[in-house]
Simulated assay, not measured.
Amino acid sequence: MTSATSTSVTTDGFVVVPRRHLGRWIGAAVVVVFLVWLGVSVSRAALDWGVVRSYLTFPVILTGLGIAIVLTIAAMVIGLLMGVVTAVMRMSKNPVTAGVAWLYVWVFRGTPVYLQLLIWFNLAIIFPVIGFPGLAPTRTIDLLTPFVAAAIGLGLNQGSYTSEVVRSGILSVDEGQTEAAQAIGMPRLMILRRIVLPQAMRVIIPPVGNEVIGMLKTTSLASAIGVSEILSQAQHIYFVNSRIMELLIVCAIWYLATVSVLSIGQFYLERHYAKGATSKALAPTPLQRLRAVFGTARSYR
Rank of each mutant, 00 (worst) to 15 (best):
I184R: 01
P59W: 05
G176W: 00
A181T: 06
G83W: 05
N122R: 09
P133W: 06
Y104R: 06
L56W: 09
S220M: 10
L144D: 07
R90K: 03
I225N: 10
T11I: 14
N241L: 11
T5F: 13
S232T: 15
I213L: 10
T145H: 01
S92N: 03
T72S: 08
L56V: 09
L38D: 14
L117Q: 08
K275S: 01
R243A: 12
V15L: 05
V42Q: 15
R24A: 14
L38R: 15
P59C: 11
A151E: 07
M1K: 13
T72V: 04
V105W: 05
S3E: 14
R194F: 07
F294S: 08
G185L: 01
Q116M: 08
H272D: 04
S41T: 15
Y273L: 08
M245R: 13
L197V: 05
A150L: 03
P207M: 04
F294Q: 08
V261C: 12
L282F: 08
L156T: 06
E164M: 01
G13I: 06
T10P: 10
A136Y: 11
V240E: 13
I253L: 14
G66D: 10
V240Y: 14
V60S: 15
G66Q: 06
I225M: 12
Q158S: 10
Y238R: 15
V173N: 05
P146Q: 02
L221S: 05
R291Q: 11
G131E: 11
L256T: 13
P112D: 05
F58G: 11
E229Y: 03
H236L: 15
R193H: 04
A29I: 09
N122Q: 03
A149I: 07
A222K: 04
T10Y: 14
T219I: 05
V30K: 03
M186Q: 00
R291H: 13
I253G: 09
V100I: 05
V293D: 10
I213M: 12
L144H: 07
V165N: 08
K93R: 02
T57E: 12
R188Q: 09
S228I: 13
R167S: 04
K217A: 15
G169W: 00
S92F: 06
A224I: 13
A252N: 14
A252F: 14
F294I: 10
G185T: 05
T10R: 12
P206H: 00
V85P: 00
V165Y: 07
T72R: 00
H21M: 10
Y55H: 13
Q235F: 11
K275F: 04
Q177Y: 00
I130K: 06
S92H: 07
S172M: 01
A68M: 05
D142V: 03
